[in-house]
C-alpha cells in the first residue's frame, strides 16, 4: 500500500499504527506532532490510529526559529 508522508509517497507492506510507523523510523513520540488526513492526532491516539492505503500524514517537530 502507498501513503503520502510529508508530501512524498512511501510504500508500506501492510497497514500499521502511527505509533509503529514512527518508532520504526527511530522517532520519539513525545517530540513530534502528527497530522493524519488533515486531522491532528493526539499522542495517546498514536497506537489506535491505523494507516491505510492513500492516507496522508504530516510528521512534524520543533526546530530552531525566531
Amino acid at each position: 500500500m502507498e501513503i503520502i508522508v510529508n508530501g512524498s509517497s512511501e510504500n508500506l507492506n501492510k497497514s500499521c499504527s502511527i505509533y509503529d510507523y514512527i518508532t520504526n523510523k527511530g522517532l520519539t513520540p513525545e517530540k513530534i506532532v502528527i497530522e493524519h488526513n488533515y486531522n491532528i492526532i493526539p499522542m495517546d491516539k498514536y497506537k489506535t490510529t491505523i494507516l491505510n492505503d492513500n492516507d496522508k500524514i504530516e510528521v512534524l517537530n520543533f526546530v530552531g526559529g525566531g
Binding site: 522517532l27 520519539t28 517530540k31 510528521v59 512534524l60 517537530n61 520543533f62 526546530v63 526559529g65 525566531g66
Partner: peptide, 30 residues
C-alpha cells in the same frame, strides 16, 4: 521561540532537547 517543520528523517535533530523544561515556549507559524 521555536518553529514547526516537517521531520527530517535522516537527521533526527530536535531543538527541544536543548531547551530547559521551565522555559516558556513560543512556537511561531513561520
Amino acid at each position: 521561540t521555536v518553529a514547526l517543520r516537517r521531520v527530517d528523517f535522516n537527521a533526527n535533530e530536535n531543538v527541544m532537547t536543548h531547551i530547559p523544561k521551565d522555559t516558556v515556549l513560543l512556537p511561531n507559524t513561520s
